[in-house]
């Protein structure tokens, strides 16, 4: 499904060198490591927001290394949900698709939220809307950049279990980066410690 071959990147110091990752259909991978070890940069390179120093990324066997981010079909959930304040919840979802807003909002546990202003949402609700939008875009792979870290414990445990179930239902492969091992264990099928590879 997704193959990352010999990925290298440095920003002053080496963040990752000759890194290999394989992700199968429906598999959920967690990448852990301390702050500043390059987890976020790795995700940004995979989805095309940053360029690699060297290495190749293959999606379903096609080399997508030089393809711009907007054409890769890889989704990303940022640490803080990026919701556009001039649009309602439904308006934000429309950026991914104009259909099935009610259905996806039920899936993420926010029924009847279509007309809400995004600045009235709590942190957890905002992250669920961002997830709904990412799922509506039907990505080949979903990348999650510590999306649960800003939430309180109860909320994050609930959201982790809900998101995992949703991804498994859709057989959508995903990569979560986090510094929290417990979170990684709860969410993923397997883990890679970036500071040790």
């Amino acid at each position: 499904m997704l193959s990352c071959l010999n990925l290298s990147k440095k920003y002053g110091k080496i963040l990752f060198n000759e890194l290999n990752i394989n992700l199968e259909k429906g598999e959920i991978l967690a990448i852990i490591g301390p702050s500043g070890c390059g987890k976020t940069t790795l995700l940004r390179c995979i989805c095309g927001l940053e360029e690699l120093d060297s290495g190749k990324i293959l999606l379903n066997g096609d080399d997508i290394t030089k393809i711009p981010a907007e054409e890769r079909g890889i989704g990303l959930l940022f640490q803080k949900p990026v919701l556009y304040p001039h649009l309602t919840v439904s308006g934000n979802l429309s950026l991914a698709s104009f259909n099935n807003h009610d259905k996806v909002l039920v899936e993420v546990g926010l029924p009847n939220f279509e007309d809400r202003d995004v600045d009235t949402l709590s942190g957890g609700e905002g992250q669920r809307v961002a997830l709904a939008r990412a799922l509506l875009a039907n990505p080949n792979v979903l990348l999650l950049d510590e999306p649960f870290s800003a939430l309180d414990l109860d909320m994050s445990i609930k959201l982790i279990s809900d998101v995992r179930a949703l991804l498994k239902d859709r057989s959508c492969p995903a990569i979560l980066v986090t510094h929290n091992i417990e979170e990684a264990k709860l969410f993923s099928d397997r883990m890679i410690d970036l500071s040790k590879v």
Binding site: L49, A69, E70, L76, F78, V82, L95
Partner: peptide, 17 residues
């Protein structure tokens, strides 16, 4: 402006062009 707004849009179908 937080660059995530533009980056997020790049990764969504209605922000491709």
């Amino acid at each position: 402006l937080n660059p995530n707004f533009e980056e997020q849009l790049l990764l969504l179908p209605n922000g491709v062009t």
